[in-house]
Every structure is written in structure tokens, then in C-alpha cells.
Nucleic acid binder design. Structure first.
Lengths: 345, 345
DNA sequence: TTGTAGGCGTTATCAG
DNA sequence: CTGATAACGCCTACAA
């Protein structure tokens, strides 16, 4: 475990000055004779030399690194997002430092500090909803912030990449209405997240448009973490007049909700039609295969990274970008004609 | 976007020297008068000062950061592992920089270089199987390497945290044997990974112990990436005498395999009993709920981080640690008595 | 084409 | 208790 060689060691080994070594390291930062270069390269890998990122960073005053701040990697949606972001970033030679907030604003605040300290060039994040001041400070520091999946209204200046949540929820709702459902329940995320809010809006829109009443009993806003989806389902099924259809607009709660439905001995779609947000690879393997809103994760990742890196190269127009990618509606077998509709109407 | 304040700005603002500021920053690195300290603290958050990690790192010659190198975040197993590792690390005030290799030794090599440049204290990794020299160099540099989930035989000195793969495969196999199966197929990962190898070994052990012949037709070693599991299933089902049971020992191929089984119109467990490696949250929601080997992911994460950090503090005995945690066997409904067993024997 | 020297922001070592 | 000042490893003028 001898200590790492420095640029000086390489210089000595090759019999040249550090400046020359630096020049061969950063291709094109200055002229180097062919022969000299060869000697240096030789020395470099004889010593197994590797430039220290910290020193470079200090000198140059920043890194090309992207900070990726997600709420929860155990959620397959975010896991796949992370996978794609890391991939896209690497394709551009940029590293990713990953932090998770567990939906906790306190941890989020810490993470922001950390990222400032690390002097990352950009951060891609799914904000919890709080820490408005902190986010502002980060942006003021010259860090390019890109929100993905969610946004914060109080921060109208940061770039945002999301799916069209309102429209997606409308589509899902309309689908069920077309099948004759009118008692449709909706489970969404907390109202202080843009996804939670926009999806509920879409749901309401579609219901109103169809002249159907929206009963507050049937709308449930629950946290992303935990298993609240289970109890919510129980509550819904226990209603005097239970819903005939359910939309789960909270990705993280799809599994708990489904679990409870199974336990309750309710049949899908005979007793209850189900549509869920986010199509993960397992969705089609459960019985019945689930009708779902598929979020184009690669697009989300692609645009986020594109913007993040584009900004740090100042190759983007000043104006804040707000990209909405369309989600696909995938019809499978968990949604069907409302059996009650014939008799009830 | 004014530039970030430095320790000097703080010193000026507080009317003291940089040394003093440094001392209040690093609690207990030297004496500071109470009043002075107050002034400094005041100045610090008036300026929103945040020490630059790069400078510290340069000065001190290393970071407390952990490099986490996984093959594929889209695989829920690794996603959950990442989640836990990030969590455990943070609980100890350590950051994680995440890299994925996509099972590609070339990308792995790059990642190793990167990590050296970043002068991380430790790296936790699921090695692809190659790059033996590179891994050695990393270790020689004084970086604490911990392999998790898999190991490399050619590197007998690095710490390893895995589940007991051989035993787990034995248990799974024995379970099927007990149910009267003797034509049992086994899908595993490539032989150049320890998981692939050990699981096959376990399978063979159990078969031999029961005096059953192991037909090579029934053992398939396929890559972790891609959808090879589908074709493999087709091949197996197309055999003159198809197997009555299948163990999928390649976590990433569980989904493709299952998918093809469904498509083939085969009934589980009536026509085919199925046992899979790794119990993810969806496993119990598919029909029928899958009998599975559950890997204790939190234990894997916990021990990995424990070792990684322990080593960097030199608080661990010299000797290499090799931790094997036991996996649980979770019996559900995808495995059943062999219907053919009565007639065939 | 090559070399020399100064500085990036911190911490650590010594004098005051 | 506090304050100068020399590293840490690299890059970049500027000189040779």
C-alpha cells in the first residue's frame, strides 16, 4: 500500500516537467512533441498513475459531476430512473453521485448541503416539496437544478421534466367511465407534491366532463412511503356503497393496495376494475395483468441529463425549460365493463 | 450567481483568522474562545458558507466516501441493495457515489479508474468476474474493497459478503425432490460468477444426495442481462420429456422465464413447479404466488457498509472477512407435489 | 516545444 | 487562545 503517485512522480519518471505531463493528460491543452508524449504515456502506466479528481476540482472550481437526488430507490420506478440517468450521464462522461431522501425534507436539506460542498455542476432531483429556500440557494450558487417527475410551484425558475400527469389521470379515468363506471375511487400522493395534485386534477376533470359527481370519500391522498395503501383499500371496500373501480395514482402504493385487494377476496375486474400508475415489468405478470399508465422512464432520464449537462455548458437558451413527456396507456385485463352499470342506471 | 464564499471570506466577516474558522469547523481540532466561536458561527451562516469537499480532500488525502459499484439498477435486487447501502452509509455520515457496470467488464474497468481518481476510502461492489488486475491495483492503493453478493476466486484477499448460495440451492432442490420431482431443471447465472457456480453446485449436491441423475439438458447457464430466460424456458418445455420442476437461480431472469411460461399456456404448479431466487415484493402477487429464496438484503447491506467503514478506520482485524448470511426459504403456491411421480415410479 | 512558479480552499504546525 | 504559513496535487500563464 504505497501512496499514490502524483504528477510529479510521473514527470520525474519520464524525465520531463510536470507541465508537460499535464498537457498530455489534458489532450490539446498545449503542444507536446510526439516522442515526449510517448515517454510520458509510458511512465504513466508504468506507475499506474491516476490524476486526483480533488486536485483538479479545486483548481478548476467545479466538477462535471451530476448529483442525483431521489426519494426512494426501493421504488422500482425510481430505481429504473436512476439506472437510466446513470447510463445517460456516463455516455457523456459524467459521473453521478446518488443520494436518497426517503421523502424526508430533513434528509433532503442535508443532501443539498452535501451537494453544495461537493461543488457538483448540476443536480437532478425529485423534490419532497419542502426546503424551498435551500433549493433557491443551491440555484443561486450556480448549480443547475433539474426537477424530474415532480416540481415545486414556489420555484418557477428551475427546469422541470415530468410526464403529463393531468392528462394521464384523465385518460385513465375516462377509460373507466367508458366502461360504465361512475363510482370511481382515486388514490394519489400527497397534495403538496405536483404529481399528487395534478393527477387528482385530471381525475376531477374527467369526472366533471362526464357529469359525474366526485365524492370526497373516494379520493385518498396518502404518503409515498409506508403501506397506507392497504388500509385505504380496506376503507374503500368497507364503504356502504363501495366503488366499482379504483385508480392507484401513487406508484409506491400500488403493491400494498393490490395486496389488500387480494386478501379481501375481491375479484378483479369482476368486482373492482383497477388501473395503476406506472407500468413496471411485473405488472403484466400479476393476475389479472394490470391496466396501467406507462411512464416513459428513458425519456425522463434522457431529457433530465440533457438539460443538466446542456446548462453546465451554457448551451441552452436562458429560459427555463419545462418538458412534459406523454405517458402511454396500456390496457390489460384488470379493467372491465362495470357489472353494476346496467342495473344501476 | 456570485461565487461561493471561502473560508477566508468567513474569516474576514468575523474579524478573525482562517485558522480559527477552520477550528470551529472541525470541532475539537483546537481551542476556540466561546465568544469567538459565536462570531464565527454567525458569519458562517450569514454568508451561507459551505466548506469545499475538494479542498479538504486534497489536504487530507482521501475521503470518507464509499464507491458503490453495481451491475444493474434495473434489477430490483440490486436496487434494493443500493437503497439499503445508501441508507446505512448515510447513517454513519458517509456518502455514496454510485456506478453501474451493466455486467460489462469494460465499463467496470473504467469505473475502477474513476474510483481511484476520486480517492474513495472504500468500494462495495458486485464484480463482473473480470478485471482481476485492476481490482488488485485498487486494493494495493489502499482502497478497502468489499465484494457483495458475488466474489472472485482469483482475489482471495478481499472481504466478501454473500448469501449462502450453495446451501440455498440445495434447500430449493431438496424441497422439490421431497415433492416427488426428479426431472428438475435449473437456470443459473454464468459460471464465471460465484453465484452462478455455487448455486449449480448446490443443485448438484442435492440431486446426488438423493441418488438422482443430473441431466445436462436441464442445466442452463445464461447471462444476467437480456431476456435469455424466455428462450431457455421454451427449450426446456420443448424437450422430449420436459422437466416437472424448474428452479430459476438467476434473479434477473425470473421475470422473462415466468413470462414465457405464461405464454406457453403451461399451468403452475400443475404442469410445472417453480422455485425462484430472490423474493421481491411482487413475488407474492403473481399467480400463483411464487415459492422463493429470500435474500436478506438489509443484512448484506449492513455488513458490507460495516466492513467498508470499519476497515477505513482500521478497526477491524487484519484477516479478510468472509460473511455468509443465510437466506430464507419461503414456500408459497408455485411448487406442488409432482403429478407424474406416482405413475412414473 | 518545454519548464517555472503561483494559486485553487483547507488543514496542520508553529510561533505569538 | 489566536494568527501566519506551508503543504496537498493539479492546471495555467508566462518565460525560456
Amino acid at each position: 500500500m504505497k501512496k499514490a503517485p502524483t504528477i510529479r512522480d510521473v514527470a520525474a519518471e519520464a524525465g520531463v516537467s510536470v507541465a508537460v505531463v499535464s498537457r498530455v493528460l489534458n489532450e490539446g491543452s498545449g503542444p507536446v512533441a510526439k516522442l515526449t508524449k510517448a515517454k510520458v504515456v509510458e511512465a504513466i502506466d508504468r506507475l499506474g498513475y491516476q490524476p486526483r479528481a480533488a486536485a483538479r476540482e479545486l483548481q478548476h472550481g467545479g466538477t462535471a459531476t451530476i448529483g442525483l437526488m431521489l426519494t426512494d430507490l426501493a421504488n422500482p420506478f425510481f430505481a429504473r430512473l436512476a439506472d437510466r440517468v446513470v447510463w445517460e450521464a456516463r455516455a457523456r462522461g459524467v459521473q453521478v453521485i446518488l443520494l436518497t431522501t426517503q421523502e424526508d425534507p430533513h434528509l433532503e436539506a442535508e443532501s443539498i448541503e452535501t451537494l453544495i460542498g461537493r461543488s457538483v455542476a448540476s443536480v437532478i432531483a425529485t423534490p419532497t416539496g419542502g426546503n424551498v429556500e435551500k433549493w433557491k440557494r443551491l440555484a443561486t450558487r450556480g448549480v443547475n437544478v433539474v426537477f424530474v417527475d415532480r416540481e415545486i410551484d414556489a420555484l418557477p425558475d428551475v427546469d422541470v421534466v415530468t410526464i403529463s400527469n393531468t392528462t394521464s389521470a384523465e385518460v385513465a379515468t375516462q377509460h373507466l367511465i367508458d366502461l360504465g363506471h361512475h363510482r370511481i375511487a382515486f388514490i394519489s400522493g400527497p397534495l403538496n407534491t405536483s404529481t399528487g395534485r395534478d393527477r387528482v386534477t385530471g381525475f376531477r376533470n374527467a369526472m366533471n366532463k362526464a357529469g359525474l359527481e366526485v365524492e370526497n370519500d373516494l379520493i385518498h391522498l396518502i404518503p409515498f412511503r409506508g403501506e397506507a395503501g392497504s388500509d385505504t383499500v380496506s376503507t374503500l371496500l368497507g364503504l356502504p356503497v363501495p366503488p366499482t373501480a379504483l385508480i392507484v395514482g401513487n406508484t409506491a402504493q400500488v403493491r400494498p393496495a393490490l395486496r389488500r385487494i387480494k386478501q379481501s377476496g375481491i375479484f378483479v375486474p369482476e368486482d373492482l376494475s383497477v388501473v395503476v400508475f406506472d407500468d413496471n415489468p411485473w405488472t403484466e405478470l400479476v393476475s389479472p395483468p394490470l391496466t396501467a399508465i406507462r411512464q416513459p422512464i428513458d425519456m425522463l432520464a434522457h431529457h433530465s441529463v440533457e438539460i443538466a449537462i446542456g446548462r453546465s455548458k451554457r448551451q441552452l437558451p436562458e429560459a427555463r425549460r419545462r418538458i412534459q413527456v406523454d405517458a402511454d396507456f396500456v390496457r390489460r385485463s384488470s379493467s372491465a365493463q362495470c357489472s353494476a352499470s346496467v342495473t344501476t342506471i
